[in-house]
């Protein structure tokens, strides 16, 4: 576990997001056991690891969809100490804290009763209090950005999985978050639809978005990640540049995970 990863990131200055010694337990089970992570503006951090290693939980703790049991988190100028329950935001301030992040989920999770356009616009109207016409104009721009112009009036069930996931990305982008979180966003997609989602994500990375990506797409990690983190059993095992971790892993657990993974890929 590295406590000051910024040296490896190769980007100086104060990180946009700084997580220290994150812990998360479910009853007696410790899902995350002391994870630290810095993310700088414009950086793409990819987290890999076997199922149940705590990578998704770590991601969900960042925007407090899960309430951590210990550690600290700083985002911009806002600092939270999870050991001090009473200092944590609740209600409206918790909701507004979450809006600093944009999150995209494995199952897309679009609002089923709303069209693509409304899915993207609703946060702008309800959370950002923008007038509806302006929200809709912005939503159209974001749908165009993910390649879905002309699809704005479709309901989620009228879209393919890949299209739904791109709407979900547009929904997250529309809120102009400081950090984008991607939680295995291609895992539920048919193989032929994975590419369209990954290419949108590559585009975002190219435009300088700050991203934390939990994924099993090693090729994506290879191409896009500024930094790769390998987690196992709730801990960070290895961390470094994509080339370093994916091509020349030092830790035996990382090596065996990648070897197993490549075998599966080859078999598949």
């Amino acid at each position: 576990m590295t406590d000051s990863p910024e040296t490896e990131a190769g980007k100086g200055g104060r990180p946009t997001l700084s997580l220290r010694s994150l812990r998360k337990s479910y009853g007696p089970v410790e899902a995350v056991r002391g994870v630290s992570l810095d993310v700088h503006a414009g950086e793409v951090v990819v987290i890999i690891g076997p199922s149940g290693c705590g990578k998704s939980t770590t991601l969900r703790c960042l925007n407090l969809l899960e309430e951590p049991t210990g550690g600290t988190l700083r985002v911009g100028d806002r600092e939270l100490d999870f050991a001090d329950r009473r200092s944590l935001p609740t209600g409206r301030s918790l909701a507004r804290f979450r809006a600093r992040f944009g999150m995209v989920f494995q199952q897309f999770d679009l609002f089923a009763h709303k069209t693509a356009l409304e899915n993207v616009a609703i946060g702008l109207v309800v959370v950002r209090k923008k007038p509806r016409p302006e929200a809709q104009r912005l939503a159209l721009d974001h749908l165009a950005r993910v390649g879905l112009s002309g699809m704005e009036d479709r309901l989620p069930r009228e879209l393919s999985g890949g299209q739904q996931q791109r709407v979900a990305i547009a929904r997250a982008l529309a809120m102009t978050p400081e950090v984008l979180l991607f939680d295995e966003v291609t895992s539920a997609l048919d193989p032929e639809l994975v590419g369209e989602v990954l290419s949108v994500m590559k585009g975002l990375a190219g435009d300088g978005a700050t991203m934390v990506v939990v994924t099993h797409e090693m090729a994506f990690a290879q191409d896009v990640a500024d930094r790769v983190i390998f987690m196992d059993q709730g801990e960070v095992i290895e961390e470094g540049g994509a080339e370093e971790v994916l091509a020349n892993p030092r830790n035996p657990r990382t090596r065996s995970f990648l070897a197993r993974f490549r075998r599966q890929e080859a078999d598949g």
């Binding site: 989920f105 199952q107 609002f111 089923a112």
Partner: peptide
Amino acid sequence: GQWQAARAIGMTYPEMMQHI
């Protein structure tokens, strides 16, 4: 999933209930 998506874009509980 829709509950967590609504919370993730920053809705409060009443906003999520009302709109989603």
